[in-house]
Design a protein around this nucleic acid. Sequence first.
DNA 1: GACAGGTGTGTAATCGATTAACTACGCCCT
DNA 2: AGGGCGTAGTTAATCGATTACACACCTGTC
Lengths: 321, 321
Amino acid sequence: MKDVAQHAGVSTATVSRVLNGHAAPTPETRERVLAAIEELGYRPNALARSLRTTSTQTLGLVISDLLNPFFAEIARAVEDEARSHGYCVVIGNADESAEQEATYVRTLLDRRVDGLLLCPATDDPALVREVSAGGVPLVLLDRTVRGATCPVVRADGSEALTALARRLVGAGHSRIGVIAGPPDTSTGRERSTVFTGALGGLAQVVHGDFRQESGSQAAARLLDDGATALVAMDNLMGLGALAQIRSRGLRIPHDIALAVFDDQPWFPLLDPPISVIAQPTVEMGRAAARSLLALINGQQPDDVRLTAKLVLRGSLGEAEL
Amino acid sequence: MKDVAQHAGVSTATVSRVLNGHAAPTPETRERVLAAIEELGYRPNALARSLRTTSTQTLGLVISDLLNPFFAEIARAVEDEARSHGYCVVIGNADESAEQEATYVRTLLDRRVDGLLLCPATDDPALVREVSAGGVPLVLLDRTVRGATCPVVRADGSEALTALARRLVGAGHSRIGVIAGPPDTSTGRERSTVFTGALGGLAQVVHGDFRQESGSQAAARLLDDGATALVAMDNLMGLGALAQIRSRGLRIPHDIALAVFDDQPWFPLLDPPISVIAQPTVEMGRAAARSLLALINGQQPDDVRLTAKLVLRGSLGEAEL
DNA sequence: GACAGGTGTGTAATCGATTAACTACGCCCT
DNA sequence: AGGGCGTAGTTAATCGATTACACACCTGTC
C-alpha cells in the first residue's frame, strides 16, 4: 500500500479512501491512485483490513458430513446466498464427530468469522453456549440442540411422515422397520418419534449413524426380524438399506417396501423408483444464510420451518400409485 | 492478550511465548499465564497472528462443482490430509464457471492462504499465471491447463478407456456414443480423445458440460442417431444419460449398453449394475494436499498420475462377465 | 481584506499479535 | 569484590490496513 501511495504521490490514507469508495478524493487523485494500483498489481491484504475493521465478510459453516449429498447441497445453497450479499463462506466438515465439530467451530471463531452456521452433530448445547458467550451470531441448520437460544432453520417432516405411516398401514404392513438416525440428534430422534407414533405399535426401530454402512446393518437386522417395509430416515442409510436388500436378492416392492427420508437425483432411476420424503434443501440453505445475515445486521430473525413432502414413486407397492 | 498479561502479572511478550511453546518462560510463569488464559477464556486472534507471521496455516481449494460427488469426495480427502498436518482448508465452489473461479482464487489469495489447490474450470492458463506471479504455491487437481508450470495431480484413464473400447468393439457395437466433457477442459478433451482413438471410427462424440442435464441431452442426440452403446465421461452426465435411457423405456444392456467414467456408491445398485471406470478419488485428494504442503515447505514435488480402473458390472451386456 | 465554512490530504494512533534487542538478576569463578 | 555470563522477562518496532483529527487551501460574504 505504501508503494502504491508513493507511486501515486499521495499518502496511504488517500489510497485507502479510494479503495473504500469514500467521497473525499478528487476524481483526478482517484485516477492516479487507480493507475498506480493497476500498474503495481496491488491487492489489499484482507487480514490487515479485517484486523482493523473487525469484520471479515466471512460466514463459517460447519456441516455434519460433506460426503452426504444433502449437506453438500445445503453448503452450495448457503454459499450462493452468502455470495450474493458479498460474503464468503468457509466450510468445515465435522464428519458427524462432536470433537471435530468443536475443533472447527473454534478454528472459525479464531479466524473471526462474522457469523456461524452450524449443523450440530449432537444435542449437546455446550458448544452453542460457547459460541453465544463469545457474542458471535449463530444459526442452527437442519438440527437443533436442547434449549437452543438461537434461530433454527429446519425442515418439518411430520405431515409427510404421518401420511407415509397411514399409507403403509393401509397397505396392510404390520411389521415396519424404521432405520432411524442417532438418538442424540434432533432429526434422528424426532423423525422416528413422529413416525412410530403415527404407526401405533407396528414399528420396530433401529438406530444408525447417518452413514451407509449403518443403514445396511440396520436393514439386515430388521429384515431378519421379518419386516415387510423399511423406512430409512436419511439418504445415506437409505443407500445402505438398498444395498442390503439387493444383496439378499429381495425385490421391491414385492418382497419389501422401501421409503427414504431425503430425495436424491438417482432415486427415480431405480427400478422401481424409490418413494421419498423430499426436503426443500436449497431453500433451507438459503434461509439459514439469510437468517444469519439478518442476525449480523442486528435483527432478530424468527425460526424457519419448511415442510418436507412425500413423493410417491412405486417402491411402496401398487397401492400407492 | 493485554488482559491476560495483566492478570498473570507479566508482559504480552511472555504470554506470546507461552502460547507458542518457546523455551524461555519458567514453569511457574507458564502456569500462571495458562491459568489467566483459562480464567479469561482468552483465544488468540488468528488474523493478528497471521498478519504478523505471514502464515495462515490455511490451504485454499477451488473446486469445479461442489454438487458433483466426485469433487465432494476430493474436498473431503484434501481436508483430511491437510488437517493431519495442522492446516485448515477453505473451499470455494466455482460451479464450472471461469469467472466465479477467478473470483474465488483472488478472494483466497487476498486472505493470504499459504497455498492453493485448483481444479481449473477451463484450459486457460491466465489464472494459473496470475497465482504463480504472486508467488503463491499452487497445485492443479484433476485437470490441468495449457502449459502448466506447477505440479499436477490427476487420474490416468487411458488404459481403462482403451480396455473399455476393446470390449465394446469385441461385443460387436459399431455405433458408440460418447458423452464427453467440455472440450476446453483437459479431462473433457483427453478422455474422449483417448477413447475415440481406441475405437477407430466407430465413435460419435457429443460434448456436455459435466452436468446432469447436458448428459441427458447428449444421450438423446446419440440415441436418436442410433447408438447401441453410450459412454459418459463423468458421473453427473452418466446420471443424465441414465435418466434419458429410462424415460425412453430402453433396457440396459439389451437395448443399450452403458458405461460411466467415475464410480458412485449407487451405481452397483441399479439393475443391471453400471460398469464404470473408477478413479482413486480419495488418493487424488490426499496426494494433491501432500504435494501442496511439500511446495509450501520449499520442496519441488513431481506430478502425480494415479491410474483409473475399469470395473465391469453388467451394464455392457453378457459378454463382459 | 479578514474570516467563516467547506473540501481534499496528510499525520499518526490503532487493531492484536510476534520477536529482536535490551535489561535485570543471580550465580560462579578468580 | 568484581567481571563475565546465562536466563527470565520487558520494551518497542512491526505486519498492512482504517480513520479521527489536524491542516492547508479555496471560495464567498460583509
